[in-house]
Computed example of a mutant assay.
Amino acid sequence: MKILICDDEYTNLEILKKYITEYTAAHCIKADIYATASSKDVFESSTSYDLAFLDIQMPDIDGISVAKELKNRNQKIVIFFVTAFDEYQDEAMDLHAFRFFEKPFDAERLYASLDKALQYIDETYIDLFLYNSGEDKKILVDDIMYIRRENRKIILHTKDGNEYITRRNLNEWMEELPNTFFYLVHKSFLVNLHYITKNSYSIIVLDNTIQIPVASRKQVDFHKYWFQYLKRR
């Protein structure tokens, strides 16, 4: 998950980064957190984010303009605005802002909002394009049950029983798919946790039928992640 924090006040920037770092660590979420005081740098880059905290009033480019640009890159992005100015809220609501925060930050409200944001991300459908037999096919991320490596092939399995040989390797799929509910349980298996119907220490079962091994060196970390996932459901 890629998270952006953009605030021209360094003290607030560091406090917010600290809170979010602690939250993602406690929930076993792998997150790349980019904190910057320069809205211009964010606006001029091409990076796409899953979640963003934006100060509305900034000297170079205001947070509303940055949010519009980030929405162009990823329509599913969750945006939090940091502001004490009511005059901006109508325009911010047009961008479907997830929450507003005033300074100084209330840690408990922040954590509760992050819980809601992760639930939203988990439930969001994202369109992907797969390469299969010389054609592109559009599917929904939530339809993906698991992805497996077989020799040099990477095969994607969907809930309706279809299989697609993809151009991406497993590392690329890990970057592409939301790590709030996809987990690499084995060097050859990336699974969608939504489909797990049985979970023992070394084996998971998807949709009551498909058995997938959990690598021994991943078992402890995966089960911590699994329990955190269950708490969010």
Rank of each mutant, 00 (worst) to 15 (best):
P178I: 14
E172V: 05
S113P: 11
I20K: 06
R148M: 08
M1E: 06
A112P: 02
I5N: 01
I210E: 01
M93F: 15
L140R: 13
Y146R: 06
Y10M: 07
K18W: 13
T11F: 14
T24Q: 02
K153V: 02
H96A: 05
Q219G: 03
N171A: 11
I5G: 00
I212M: 03
D143L: 04
E14N: 11
Q211I: 01
D160M: 05
E102Y: 11
I3Y: 04
I212N: 00
E163W: 03
K231L: 14
L170H: 11
T180D: 03
A112E: 10
N74R: 04
Y201K: 09
R152D: 02
D115E: 07
T24H: 03
Y164T: 04
N192R: 04
K30A: 10
V82D: 01
F182E: 04
K116C: 12
W226T: 03
S133G: 07
L140W: 05
I64T: 06
M58Y: 12
D7P: 02
N169A: 14
E175P: 13
H27N: 11
W173R: 10
V66M: 03
I77P: 07
E102F: 08
L51K: 02
G134K: 12
G134W: 12
K159R: 08
I155N: 08
D55P: 04
H186G: 10
D55K: 03
P59M: 09
D94Q: 14
Q57C: 05
C28N: 06
I126P: 04
